[in-house]
Design a protein around this nucleic acid. Sequence first.
DNA 1: ATTATATGAAACCAAACGGTTTCATGTCAA
DNA 2: TTGACATGAAACCGTTTGGTTTCATATAAT
Lengths: 135, 135
Amino acid sequence: MSGAAPRHDVFQAIADPTRRKLLGLLSEKEMPVKDITGHFSMTRPAVSKHLRILEEAGLVKERKVGRETRYRLDAGPLQDLKDWLSYFDRFWENKLSMLKHYVEEGSMDRETPEGQDPALSLVSRKSRPNQEEQG
Amino acid sequence: MSGAAPRHDVFQAIADPTRRKLLGLLSEKEMPVKDITGHFSMTRPAVSKHLRILEEAGLVKERKVGRETRYRLDAGPLQDLKDWLSYFDRFWENKLSMLKHYVEEGSMDRETPEGQDPALSLVSRKSRPNQEEQG
DNA sequence: ATTATATGAAACCAAACGGTTTCATGTCAA
DNA sequence: TTGACATGAAACCGTTTGGTTTCATATAAT
């Protein structure tokens, strides 16, 4: 039997804030587990497990040096994320490109009730004041 | 009291393949839950829960129309993802920009053992043959 | 050889996840 | 008004997650 299929993909790997912090850390320089653990408030085995998950996702490479294992970033798989994200580019790039798609594709033609323009809700929330919780 | 703090962020929201598919679907057009469910092999309440999570992350907006609730994409929060990703741009954009950072920042100067060039491991795996599982 | 260090692996645990079935509620249709 | 439809909410369940403590193993240092 060949190696077990990796149980974690990039999307799952970056879902955890600890792991995102790990990637940031390892992007600066290769580090052994002991040093890495110093940057977190959890035990060493916990960090080790996160590293394992990152490695399954291909986001991190390890190298044995003497008795320590040094980890470093491999940003390659982040391309998968970028690729996925790029699909949504047209929706928030700017309102104009949104409108363009809106008109050209002709989805939901004329159904929009006034004061409820979907286009408005599709531009980045970054440009709007508050993150309302509607019910 | 104001609404409870959302328990799910964008990173968690997109970690699940079902939810990613949902976003793709809802990007094409606004849809009621019943129609959405037709695209999946799970029960309607399951889909509903995924929609709830997406909504907590702000990735989806809902609108009541008669007895149905129509959901549509709000790509805005994906910007958070883009922002986070952009930090890693220099690592895989291409080997040249990598080298540029390499030289300018001067991180790990001259330490690289031959046959172990870090730059090589930092370019996208997409351009390399296989996703090896090393131990 | 002996001891200390660095790490992974295993066993365990509470909480969260992803799904189900069942029930309650609101709206449209006869 | 009665009934069908669309949906959310609740209770439940098995699996995964994120953490712990403990143990095993390999390398370095004395």
